[in-house]
Simulated scan of single mutants.
Amino acid sequence: MLDEDSTDRGELGIMVDEEWSKSAAANAVKFDPDVIYVCGYWGETAPLYINNYPVVTMHHDTELEALPIAGEKKELLSTLTKMRIEKSDATIVPSRYVMEYLFSRFHASRGKVFICPPGFDRAGGEMRIERHREKKVVLYVGRIAPNKGIHILIQAVREIAKDIPVELRIAGSYTKDYAGYYARLRNIWDETIFLGKLTREEVFREMISADVIVCPSLAHEGFGIVPVEAMYHNGVVVASDIFEKTGAVNKDSAILYRRGSVRALREAIIRALTMSEREREKLRARARSYASKFTWERHGRCVERILFRFSRTSSLNHYCR
């Protein structure tokens, strides 16, 4: 049985508590900082309570319209988000996809939004795993939530299993908000293997040993670190087209399909499982090359430049130049 992970943040639509934001703002200014950096989940309002200090906010959420919450809450979130973006001196986003969303949805100032693509963690040392098994392994890694499209994946693999010996492994945890969704997933195909929450080393081992890794998200993706990790550590990745929009993958580095379509996903997975070894090696080389450009060092330098740029200390601004 997969254990609930009650310490994880709820999936999109679970709003940050206003009192928590007020407290965070008050605590931040106690340090008399040169600049304050805020991670802006939906409903995060800390910048609204910070005065006389520059504020840079990270925003990585999209598609507020599709959140499964009441209309009045969406209106409140929309208003708060617009206010937060306007109050922040700068907003950092992980992709052009999120940037364009902020421009169109919240009319963000084009001179105040900056793209800093994230990095990803790499497996330590060499993990050599021999594949001696009768079934092909299809792997999903990530949170268990409706927007991740796991129900689409299970349906697709269930159909594939009628013709190809295949095993579906689901690595990830769920919050209490999505216990019902998890229960529904377990009833789709009883041969699905739910691994629960794994350590980073265990995740890397699963990635390296899988025949194909699938990233079937339907919505609410600002970038997509999992597909990047999957391209780097495995190289045979099937991803929904939302990740092409975010820039996490492209048509040369992964096998793309139209998100939400069981048929399109099934065909993409079959293509991945039946390609020749030569085709697989070529795909792996392209995938690893594409993924390698995303590093935390690159992300850190990008964020640092923006923090220095908006710092209130002239010496830091001089250092930035």
Rank of each mutant, 00 (worst) to 15 (best):
E44G: 00
V56D: 02
T57K: 04
L64N: 02
N51V: 10
N51A: 06
Y49M: 00
H59I: 08
P54C: 05
I50H: 02
E63D: 15
T62L: 05
E65F: 13
E63F: 07
A66D: 14
V29L: 03
P47Q: 05
V38P: 06
A26M: 10
P47I: 07
I50P: 00
V56T: 11
M58K: 02
E63A: 08
A26S: 10
V35L: 10
L48Q: 12
P54T: 10
Y49V: 01
H60L: 12
V29S: 04
V35A: 04
Y41F: 05
G43L: 05
P47K: 06
E44Q: 15
N27C: 05
E44K: 02
T62Y: 03
V56M: 01
G43M: 06
P33Y: 13
T62A: 04
K30G: 01
A66C: 02
V38R: 00
Y41R: 15
E44C: 03
Y41V: 09
G43K: 09
A46L: 11
G43Q: 08
A26W: 11
V56F: 14
Y37W: 12
A26F: 07
A28K: 10
P54I: 04
H59N: 13
T57D: 11
N51F: 01
G43V: 08
Y53F: 15
Y41H: 14
A28P: 08
